[in-house]
Design a protein around this nucleic acid. Structure first.
Lengths: 231, 231
DNA sequence: CAAATAGTGTCTCTAAGACACTATCAT
DNA sequence: ATGATAGTGTCTTAGAGACACTATTTG
């Protein structure tokens, strides 16, 4: 039997059908802390509760396309997305068997539109919090956020990904604040500056900060040609 | 409407059904090089060609369970598995829409049973090779192997995962050979020894190598309590 | 004691941390 | 000039690379 003959006789219904979804973790940094976007669920189950945005993957779109569409529709954002894990426990969704692919996006705080149904909450050691402490989230969304956080932190020094948390041009102080928010510890200023300036990741824009009543900082943008030699 | 009422009225057929599979990347180190297991496909499509082992995920098993079952059935191995990515391009399988979750397993060379339908091929910079050069693999299996390789290398110093490539007790020289195979570059012996002995990852077993006609090496095993503080 | 590999001592070099210093802007 | 932050020089310390050395086993 050739491949062509086989495909004629082949019945997709022979294979166990599942729904495939994407769950979306949007991180930003505000007030010195990493924050994650939660949206109020408009539909059952867990209707009215705050949870990660997500959407089902359509038959004619790739996972990456579904994630980008989800961020656009549910979070009002465009930008690059990054897959970090898949979640497929038997009981993760009460409706049916749903396998969900976790995607992360990063955005500067200014670009995240909020509303009563869309809010940012701090993430401490990978756990979403409100004023009172750790939040209880529906489904396995707490696990998904923790996984996204660990991937973000692991790649911090080895990719350009984290620069998505900053505007296109930024100062070294802003960059350091982002690193401190992700690592959740203060960093040594001279060492941080030397390391990043020597890393080849940064390109001076020539511009500097405006409107401060003190010495303005030089601005930099990302060197998109940078590649990590190690790992 | 409550969640319970909602679940009553809910029809799974409203959601786009897809097949979910796991693709399995078994790495081992032999002859100083990283190698990957390929199996000859018994079924269409691409019947008779060598490819990654894989299996469809059943409705009543988790992704991790499906991966463990796949390694058992198709590769004859038991041991821990690690998910590293999901693959969901539209055209990756000619039969139907299949989303595949990539899983990796590591095994010492001695524990990998081979046959005419099961062989190991070297992996160079993430690309499976035979004597003549890079192999052409069906589906998106070349991409899956490359992704697995990058995840393996990225975690080399930050997890205990790579110790799966060694027997339970091993010498520092064997450990260094594994690191050199994964990083594809020679390492400095004194520096490597100091770093690993100080890392807290190793526990001396007290035993030493046997049967050599030269000085026998001390043997070590993994300290499973080790945790990475950074990243 | 010869062969072969295990394991170490030392020097150098690089990079990070600590700390204090100088530089530069608005007002 | 003052206030506030940008940015730097220097000293110390920790760890990696290079290289050559010593140690331990079998035969």
């Amino acid at each position: 039997m050739t491949d062509a003959e086989f495909l004629e006789s082949y019945d997709p219904a022979d294979y166990p059908p599942m729904a495939v979804a994407v769950d979306l973790v949007l991180f930003t940094v505000a007030e010195g802390r990493l924050q994650v976007l939660l949206v109020r669920r408009a539909a059952q189950p867990a209707r009215g509760q705050f949870a990660l945005p997500g959407t089902f993957v359509r038959l004619r779109e790739s996972l990456d396309q579904a994630a980008a569409r989800g961020f656009r529709e549910k979070a009002g954002l465009s930008g690059s997305v990054r897959q970090f894990a898949a979640f497929g426990s038997l009981d993760r969704d009460p409706r049916m068997r749903v396998v969900s692919i976790g995607y992360m996006a990063l955005s500067p705080r200014r670009s995240v539109p909020l509303s009563t149904d869309r809010r940012l909450v701090p993430v401490v050691r990978g756990v979403a919090q409100d004023e009172h402490g750790p939040l209880t989230l529906p489904f396995d969304h707490a696990e998904i956020i923790r996984s996204a956080f660990l991937h973000l932190r692991a790649d911090l020094d080895h990719s350009l990904w984290s620069f998505g948390l900053l505007e296109q041009a930024f100062s070294l102080r802003e960059l350091q604040e982002v690193h401190e928010a992700i690592r959740e510890q203060p960093l040594n200023k001279p060492a941080f500056r030397k390391r990043l300036l020597q890393s080849g990741k940064l390109i001076p824009t020539g511009g500097s900060e405006q409107g401060n009543r003190f010495r303005p900082a030089q601005l930099y943008s990302v060197n998109q040609d940078w590649r990590d030699e190690e790992r």
